[in-house]
Nucleic acid binder design. Sequence first.
DNA 1: GTGAAAGCGCTAACAC
DNA 2: GTGTTAGCGCTTTCAC
Lengths: 354, 354
Amino acid sequence: MQRTPYRRPGPGTRPFSHRLAQESGLASIKDVAQRAGVSTTTVSRVLTTPGAVRAPLRERVEQAIADLGYRPNLAARRLRQRRASIVGLIVSDIRSPFFTDVGRAVEDVAYRNGLRLILCNSDENPAKEQSYLELMADEQASGVILSPTMEGLRRLRPGDWPFPLVLVDRALESSRVDRVVLDNHAAARRATEHLLQSGYRRIALLAGIHSTTGQQRHAGYADALAAHGLAPRPLWLDPTRDAGQRATAQCLAAPPAERPDALLATNGLLLLGALQAVQAAGLRTPQDIGIAGFDNNDWTALPALDVTTIAQPTYDIGRTAAELLLQRMQDPARPARRVVLEGELVARGSSARS
Amino acid sequence: MQRTPYRRPGPGTRPFSHRLAQESGLASIKDVAQRAGVSTTTVSRVLTTPGAVRAPLRERVEQAIADLGYRPNLAARRLRQRRASIVGLIVSDIRSPFFTDVGRAVEDVAYRNGLRLILCNSDENPAKEQSYLELMADEQASGVILSPTMEGLRRLRPGDWPFPLVLVDRALESSRVDRVVLDNHAAARRATEHLLQSGYRRIALLAGIHSTTGQQRHAGYADALAAHGLAPRPLWLDPTRDAGQRATAQCLAAPPAERPDALLATNGLLLLGALQAVQAAGLRTPQDIGIAGFDNNDWTALPALDVTTIAQPTYDIGRTAAELLLQRMQDPARPARRVVLEGELVARGSSARS
DNA sequence: GTGAAAGCGCTAACAC
DNA sequence: GTGTTAGCGCTTTCAC
């Protein structure tokens, strides 16, 4: 592929290249060395090892770098160092607001630390997830942040991959890997108790079927109900709006005495679907039916909806995961950490019957 | 940094490495060549040039590759080829649903074509945008998809960068660069005409101040009003929910005869803010005030909101941008293309007064 | 503290 | 069609 000759962009943003090396049009470390009258070793040291080169020489090198508009070739550096300053983020779908926030946080931390973020969507497909992990190995990534599929999680062994791995959102209790997760059990229990306090008794759960979080949230929900001698009514669903809507509509079609008097959705999409069905059925919250759900998405606060939610510290989750990764990169030997963050119940009108 | 020895993950997913090369623990092309009894050139050809090596030899090489679990070193390949299979996506903030969708589409296309997606958030900061573009140059990216800041757009010249560039969402009429944009003028005009048809006359516009899209949408809105002899009432705002909410609340505080009878928001966040303020003021749509806005976010369809929107083909925009980039990579000489996609008016209850 | 020299893993001329 | 050889740009021993 043909390449236009490289020019520092923008007028005066940075010094122009006065001289160009080789056919590539780019100055190399050799050109810098030559211009500064030193060896390439010295240039390299100025670039990578602070304090290794004495001031007068260092300044000459820095001048040459500036004059030539030199920029190090990352491919060469990586080939030599056998490691790329790249972080992979593998999630099921970046369009999920939860992962969007996480991704943004990870990118912020990565950028501040001179790392690039490669984004990967696994679509809950273990094969695609595997393929992306292999890609990251090929890239010699410095680390990967992964929200694993159920199968991927089951299959995962420490040492499988040549890079440190941090799990987000989904993990097994037992796994000996760095990870940052929500206290799903407590959050779901808290939300369920809140609905119980509001006087609801026939509380149905819309739970995502593909993730450990769905299971853990189900457990918290079931425990809260059990403490009141009530039976759980879980609906295991694809975590999509449509699935939530269809399941809810079906629920609501039951005779009034049997149908649930409240709904708890384990993620934002299911919550949206549930609301859609409830409103389409002409039911009002909180009188006719109570509603609460995970993910405090911005629209839930609209007065016309006023939906009770569990707010997840999404940005914090991503930031913490990235920080764990950085720490692990610095100290590969340290014991695995499990960071558990708390969800916050945001009680709003949709569950305020009492 | 210490590295655990590389092992193909998962039992039986792919053949294990039987032999390990050098200290790195990874088989190199040399090991493959040796095992197959050929030169490294032949191995390289098997890897990169289909049909260049005859069947018997090729099969021997492929067997050796499988036996050793060989994977090519991308850094070495890039160093040699002076080009990385990397695509950069630079947007203001991936958390904006518009860019989330675009990003997802770009990643899909990239993955199918063996390209990695590096994600960058510029935060509307021209310096950060510039820094990311330089990063992409350092990465020897194959191409970049950019939603530029206003200043970045003004500064941009063809040939500035050593990679093909495709603009999304924001571009100047004149710029001679591949780009895919919405017909903002037509979309805003259409939405405004729709509000006029519903009988609204004092239509205020909440317009994002940082982007060309805001300006173009303002022009479409103003033209529609002018055709009816009406004066535009633009509010130029930071494109955030809070700004939209504050500005709307202030608007609504005016005496009834002066305050707008309809609001048009030029993006999803401003629309959300406007709704928040309208509902908080106890006003009903469409009776007390009409509402319409850009970005057909999923929550806008909820019966309790039922907001009229302009749906942007967000995924298509991203997909098209990625495809333009691929085509440009194959043919650097071809003339720049400008793809204009149409928004679709989704008329709902919030504007149905007539 | 600085330089000379080797080599990371791969591909692309160029020979045969 | 296949092999030999050089070298991409950088870092890292190892001398001095």
